[in-house]
Every structure is written in C-alpha cells, then in structure tokens.
Amino acid sequence: MLKIESLSKTFHANTANEVRALQNVNLILENGSFTAIIGTNGSGKSTLLNAVAGTFEPDTGSIHLENHDITHWPEYKRASLIGRVFQNPFAGTVAEMTIMENIVIAMKRGQRRSLHIAVTKTFRGEVADRVRTLKMGLEDRLDNPIGTLSGGQRQALTLLMAAWTRPKILLLDEHTAALDPKSAAKVAELTKIIIEQEKLTALMVTHSMQQAVDLPDRIIMMHRGNIVEDYHHEQKQRVRVPDLMSTFDRVQKRELFDESVAGMLEEQYI
C-alpha cells in the first residue's frame, strides 16, 4: 500500500519563477490497484511520481510504502520497492548494453550486486522465457545492444524489467506518449497484462484519456498541484472520455472563478 500524506513541493521557492508543483496532496493506493493520473500540462503529475520515486525530497509531508516510511530514502534505495518506466524510451535502458545485460541489472534491483559473473547459462533460459511473453521475437536477440531496438520494443522491455522483481509499486510516467500509435497500443496492452498477471500496484501518468478509461481501475485528475478529482470503484466504471473532458472543463472553469466573480454572484445569485 502506498500512503501519501500532505505532500507539498515548491520549486524555485521565493522567486519570480515559484512553482507550487504539489500542494498538500493526500493519496492512498490499495495493494493491487491500478491508478491513472491525468491532468493538464504542468499540473504536477510527474512531480507526484518523482516524489514517490525519490528524485527530490518533498518540502512537507510523508510517503509510506508498505511498512516503510520512505520519505527520506534516497532514490536508489527506494528502487528496491519501486519499478519505473519513463516517458522517454531511451531513459529506462542502457542503449550500448545488450538486452541480457539490461535485464540482469534490473533483476538485481534491491539486492546486493555480487562479484559473480552476471550473465550465466541457466539465467539465459529464464530470461528468454520471460522475454518470449512479449511476443516480439526479442528472445532471439538477447545479445544485441538494446539501442538497436525500436522505441516500442525498448519500452516493452523496460516494462518487463520494471515488473521483474515484483515491486511494491510500479510507476509509469506517460510511458506510451513517445511511441507511434501502434506501438503505444501494444505497450498499453502489455501494461495491463503484466499488471494483472503479477498483481502489481501501479500508478500511471497518461496523456490519453482513452487509456485512462480503458486500462486502470481508478482515475485521479490533477490540477495545479492538487488532486481535484478521484474516480474510484463504481464511479470509475461509468466514467467515459467525454466525462473526463467535461471534468477538465469544470476544473478550468473553477480557475476562472475568482474573487470578483464571487462578488458578482453575491449580488445576482439569488
């Protein structure tokens, strides 16, 4: 279970560029739940994910994952509990190294990295079996540098790597955004399959409302560093893309509702 309590983060505090990227965010993700975050650009979606991943320390608030208070853990230490897939297909793998080597690195996530030879025969078989499940024919190319693969293939592998050690939470940051539509659909499908098979808890930022409606079982909408909407349980079931659009609309209207509007309505709303 992931528990985020009153999490705040302000970038460039006390300057003209001050950005309140997260404002007192509270969120609890149940084990085995798959949640999508949607929201306008700059609404703090990635910042929320990065806060969980530990890219920076929050100004206030706490993050608990399972029974650990990870608020002050460094990024690499949290990785033992967290799997991540980034938007950029190049970010999640090492281009110059082979598929095998990349997987070996991911497989040891959260464990001591020993001085034993990493890529062994027995291990190759196991990797080939897992890679075969992607149905991309990559099991025959395990010794090719990962840089020779397409973005979609790399992202699929990154996903596999992120899920390999069954992390307590899987963080996906617009992981299909940089792919062509066909690969994006394929990776989205794999995402759902892997999360279901491994019964992972997942938090996915997406730019695609269709994806948000189709894949997860909960949708969170962010705006200006706040969670402004949370479609859960039966609400999630009935929500469709136009509903999300109108919610976006409403959120933006709320933005326009300032003090002068309040003054006007005080006179006229009777």
């Binding site: 509702f257 309040a262 309505l265 709303y269």
Partner: peptide, 30 residues
C-alpha cells in the same frame, strides 16, 4: 452559474464567500 453542491448539505445558515463559494457554485467562465 449553477449549484455544484446541494444546499441541503449546509449544516447551518451562513455567509459563504470566496474561496469556499467555489465548492458550492459553478460559474460558466465564458
């Protein structure tokens, strides 16, 4: 403008002003 929260949920009569008013009323904004 229209209600975005039912007045039936008011615990007691009160003056609601900015910013709480935004929880009760929506404004077309355009």
């Amino acid at each position: 403008s229209f209600l975005s929260r039912s007045p039936g949920l008011l615990e007691e009569s009160q003056k609601i002003s900015f910013p709480e008013i935004r929880d009760w009323l929506s404004f077309s904004g355009e």
